[in-house]
Amino acid sequence: MSFFSKSPWILHYDASSCNGCDIEVLACLTPLYDVERFGVVNTGNPKHADILLITGSVNERNIDIIENLYRQMPDPKVVVAVGACACSGGIFARAYNIQGGIDKVLPVDVYVPGCAARPESIIDGVIKGIGALEMKRKKSA
């Protein structure tokens, strides 16, 4: 039996987001949306996390950080890109310091669109991420 679907712990990292998606990610934890219903815990620590939730796009400086965080997460793990910037670079895609979406660095499993992504779609993304997590576990088992 697998417990991954019942206990997805997330790590949120703000790559170069404008705060809009970050705040919506946090809002998911709060009374109106309450993702803890699904066993979701915002860990704040890559070593505890199953799902890496990234908002904002990759830039010159945070590219290493994103890689480090992903490497420190124990397997199985999935990446959810939240918001237009994380998906493709969004409105800032052509700014000189932006390299593009998170998929420039990491294998992204779920893309959550929106500027800013709404809490409902973030929750939806996390639930889709759980599915990916299950698949990865089965593959490695």
């Binding site: 703000d14 790559a15 170069s16 987001s17 904002g56 796009s57 830039n59 400086r61 945070n62 950080i65 800032f92 052509r94 700014a95 000189y96 310091n97 932006i98």
Partner: peptide, 14 residues
């Protein structure tokens, strides 16, 4: 700081 710098001011060119 600098982990979140996008270069927004340059967007006026575009």
């Amino acid at each position: 700081i600098g982990y979140i710098h996008r270069g927004l001011e340059m967007m006026v060119e575009r």
